[in-house]
Computed example of a mutant assay.
Amino acid sequence: MQERLSDPAFLEALESTFAPAEWERVVQEQVAVTVFCRAEFAEYQEWITEGVRPEMPEYPAPDVPADMFEEDMAAFTEPTRIAIDSGDPAQLKADLLAGAACGNYPVEIGSKETIADALAEG
C-alpha cells in the first residue's frame, strides 16, 4: 500500500478524479490491482518459458473491503480468467496490455519499467 500512497501521480489522480468518499475503495483497489498485475505478468512469463498454463493470479483483499471492492475486482480479473482458460499465452499478453489493464503498472516496487515496457522487450 505504501508504494501506491507514495506515488504523486496516483495521489493527484485520486484527489482530482474521485470524491473523498471513494478514496478508501480506490486505494484498496489500486493496491489489489498492483499486486494482481505483477502476479499476472509473472504467470505470463512462466507460461511462455515453461509452457505450463498458469493458475489464476490472486490479489490481496482488505480485512474490511470498501463497498464495491469485490465486484470491481471480479470485473477487473474476469478477462484474465478468460485469457488463461483460452489456453493461448498470446491472449494473456493481450490482457496485460489491454486498455486500462496492467501495462502501465511498474514491474516491481520502485521500478520505472512498466509491464508494457517489459513485454515490448521480450
Rank of each mutant, 00 (worst) to 15 (best):
Y59Q: 01
E46S: 15
L92W: 07
Q28P: 12
M56S: 09
D88M: 04
A75G: 08
T17I: 01
F36I: 02
V35G: 01
M56G: 01
Q2E: 15
T34P: 03
C102V: 10
K112D: 15
V33Q: 13
W23A: 03
A100H: 11
P8Y: 05
S16I: 02
A19S: 14
T17K: 12
C102A: 06
G122L: 13
V33E: 09
N104H: 13
G87K: 03
A39I: 00
C102E: 06
F36T: 05
G51S: 05
V33S: 03
E113Q: 14
L119I: 14
G99D: 14
E55P: 00
L92H: 06
A83Q: 09
I109R: 11
A66K: 03
P89T: 04
A32D: 08
G122H: 12
R81W: 01
T80H: 05
F10S: 01
A75Y: 04
P89H: 03
R4D: 06
D85S: 10
F18Y: 15
M73F: 07
P106S: 07
S16N: 10
F10P: 02
P62A: 03
R4K: 10
A101R: 15
E15M: 11
W23P: 04
D67K: 11
A90C: 00
A98I: 00
E70P: 00
P20M: 06
V27E: 06
A83Y: 07
A120M: 04
R38E: 09
S6K: 03
L5E: 09
E50Y: 01
V33P: 06
I109E: 13
F18P: 04
P65A: 04
F10V: 05
A98V: 01
M56R: 14
E43L: 07
P62I: 05
Q91G: 11
E29A: 14
Q91T: 06
E24R: 10
E108L: 08
E71D: 14
P57L: 02
P20N: 07
G110V: 08
R81N: 06
L5P: 04
Q30G: 10
W23E: 04
E22G: 11
P79R: 03
R25F: 02
P106F: 02
L14N: 06
E43H: 13
P79L: 05
Y105W: 13
P65S: 09
P20V: 04
S6M: 10
A101T: 13
T80D: 08
E15N: 12
E43Q: 14
V26Q: 14
P8L: 07
E55W: 00
